[in-house]
């Protein structure tokens, strides 16, 4: 039969500088303390964190000589773990963390409006193709189209800036689009995302 050294003896040995005693204490109570923490927080990573913080407190208290031995090492450690679990929930209440479950995933309702890498590449390609096509337009049509599409100006503003009537600006825009479509059809260019 293996002789088990009592916790109180191990604690005394550890305080007297025997590091091995701490290792025995941690390994002896590892499962009980970890299971207790896990039963409250239900998260493996948080359990590890709280377990670690618990023993950091234990180590500091023992090394500072603030621990009064009453033969109750495990209940004392459990009390520290319990307090740290409460601290964890208090902190979480101030800064709640939301995690999806199997039934509901938050990312199914929150979208990311950014294009993915492939779609961004396609969009860039279309933009550059379109720029080349616009360059082929007559200057007066190109000018109106650039002002309308890229500078987001109204036809009134375009007419004021170019010194032509609104109807002329509208006509140039119309012809610009017609001519663009013609070039696109003629060259079988596909501009879709």
């Amino acid at each position: 039969m293996e002789l088990q050294i009592e916790d109180s003896v191990l604690v005394k040995n550890y305080i007297n500088g025997e590091e091995k005693a701490l290792e025995i204490l941690i390994n002896r109570h590892n499962q009980r303390i970890s299971s207790f923490i896990y039963s409250k927080v239900l998260d493996r990573d948080i359990t590890e964190d709280i377990f670690q913080d618990t023993f950091i407190k234990v180590i500091k208290t023992l090394r500072k000589g603030s621990y009064s031995e009453e033969g109750k090492f495990l209940p004392w450690v459990m009390r520290i773990a319990h307090n740290l679990v409460i601290d964890h929930f208090r902190k979480n209440k101030r800064m709640p963390k939301f995690e999806g479950s199997d039934d509901f995933n938050i990312f199914s309702v929150i979208g990311d409006d950014q294009l993915n890498a492939e779609k961004q590449l396609i969009k860039d390609q279309i933009d550059s193709d379109l720029n080349i096509l616009i360059e082929e337009l007559p200057d007066d049509q190109k000018e109106v189209l650039m002002m309308r599409i890229y500078k987001d100006m109204s036809f009134k503003e375009i007419s004021e800036n170019t010194g032509v009537s609104i109807n002329t600006a509208l006509g140039r825009m119309r012809y610009a689009l017609i001519n663009l479509r013609k070039v696109i059809d003629k060259n079988n260019i596909v501009l879709t995302n």
């Binding site: 701490l22 303390i33 299971s35 896990y38 377990f51 500091k60």
Partner: peptide, 27 residues
């Protein structure tokens, strides 16, 4: 909640960290 009653253990790395922490701590 099946896993709640399952016995848990902190991983060996955590235990090792605590032992090393204890060795490095000086009061």
């Amino acid at each position: 909640n099946q896993n709640v009653s399952k016995p848990r253990k902190a991983c060996p790395a955590t235990v090792q960290f605590l032992i090393n922490y204890s060795k490095s701590l000086d009061i």
